[in-house]
Amino acid sequence: MDRGQLINWLKEPAKMSNKYSLHVVYFCTGCGIIEIPPSITARWDAERFGVKPVATPRQANLFLITGYVSLKTLKPIIRTYEQMPEPKYTVAFGSCPIDGGMYWDSYNTINHLDKFIPVDGYIAGCMPRPESIFVGVTHLWTMIDKGMADGYKRYRENYDRYRSNQEELYGELGWPPLFERDEKNAQ
């Protein structure tokens, strides 16, 4: 263990444990998921960073959006994100969730993921190599240290606007709001 970190462990043990056990929900959207098997197996071994895929969103605190987000996948993405316990972090992976990528004028792919759920960080590339996942993870550590990875707080604060964006896309969503909606803040 890094002795320089000792003081942080004593000060904020929960935050440090969170940081070093990023459990990724095993959710495949698009082509980026092809980079996950090499990352978690022996060749690159993501577990040395504490990154480990888990079966259900209830056990997870990191959500990798791996690839383009079609209208059909966005619905389960929102539901999965809402089921994850806080603190939770979202990292969009590849160029498609950033601005649409090669699906920029598709009839069935959303262009900006951050209009619908908060995103803490982006890993650019098409596709990003496993090394860049780890660069992203170490960057996320820094952000957690500084308290900048606050996507779940922003989701809580701006829930009205996120929810109204989701409803603008789909019409009726089919599940009740996660938080209480404050109609004053709604657009």
């Binding site: 920029w104 004028d105 598709s106 009839y107 959303i110 262009n111 900006h112 951050d114 209009k115 908060p118 922003r154 701006n158 606007r161 996120y162 964006n165 603008e168 896309l169 657009q187």
Partner: peptide, 18 residues
């Protein structure tokens, strides 16, 4: 079916949250 027009009208019109 004009995909660009569709994206502009249906998807780009959704406002950014932040």
């Amino acid at each position: 079916f004009d995909t660009r027009d569709y994206v502009e009208k249906e998807l780009e019109s959704i406002p950014a949250v932040e």
